[in-house]
């Protein structure tokens, strides 16, 4: 089951952009920063080329720190194995907003406009997050139609899931048609791309309740949920 890549609307939530820029939920930026953020949110829309690739496949076998999915793909991670152990299926996805926003942010930085570059980068982060959220919502709806629930969305590089496992996700999806490539260090180019998985299982398995952060000691982790 592979959903075709197609465009989608991105709202660019201003509050979330401010959060990426470091503002707490109860604080407003100064007038200069506020106008800049509003102006750049509007201008950024024409720089977005959102695309996604998505596949739902079977979870074959899970034990200890290994999960085998979709026939022969092996995910090695204790957290991923725990996330998938009560799942019957898993959604594998890759989303991107393309190159244009990144190239513009880079040019701004080269011209010494570091503030503008920083704001545009934060908008890009929010945009790609919204595309990933779209995929998550789509997965939730697909699961619900079958009476199933979904687990937390996770990406290689989270917890003990090594970033090199990006390769496994890329093999399962048509990444090149999205224009996303992996570097030797398994970073994605364009950088404003997110890959990952979402477990799908029966409600009695409480797939939706497992949160690895609850038992994790890394209090300062940027990805803490």
């Amino acid at each position: 089951m592979l959903a075709a890549s197609r465009p989608l609307d991105i709202s660019l939530d201003r509050r979330q952009v401010l959060k990426s820029l470091g503002y707490r939920s109860d604080s407003e930026p100064s007038p200069r920063i506020a106008s800049l953020v509003d102006e750049y949110i509007e201008n950024a829309r024409q720089l977005l080329e959102p695309r996604h690739a998505y596949a739902i496949t079977n979870v074959e076998w899970v034990h200890d720190s290994v999960a085998i999915v979709g026939g022969s793909t092996i995910f090695q991670s204790r957290v991923i194995a725990r996330l998938l152990e009560r799942c019957s299926m898993v959604a594998v996805f890759l989303v991107t907003i393309g190159n244009r926003l990144e190239e513009t942010a880079c040019r701004l930085a080269e011209d010494g406009l570091i503030l503008q570059s920083y704001v545009l980068d934060a908008i890009g982060s929010e945009a790609v997050e919204e595309v990933a959220q779209y995929v998550e919502d789509m997965t939730r709806e697909t699961a619900r139609a079958d009476g199933l629930v979904i687990g937390k969305r996770v990406s290689p590089g989270y917890c003990d899931w090594d970033i090199s496992q990006q390769n496994e996700i890329f093999k399962m999806l048509d990444a090149t048609s999205l224009g996303v490539q992996l570097t030797d260090q398994c970073l994605m180019v364009p950088q404003k791309s997110i890959s990952g998985i979402i477990g799908i299982g029966p409600p009695e398995g409480k797939v939706d309740e497992y949160n690895p952060c609850k038992t994790c000691t890394r209090q300062n982790c940027l990805g803490r949920r």
Binding site: L21, G22, Y23, S27, P29, S30, R32, I33, L36, G112, L113, I114, L115, Y118, V119
Partner: peptide, 15 residues
């Protein structure tokens, strides 16, 4: 001040 404020100031100095 937040990071954007600091960057606005640094940019002014850079110019």
């Amino acid at each position: 001040y937040y990071i954007p404020d600091m960057l606005a100031a640094a940019e002014a100095v850079g110019a």
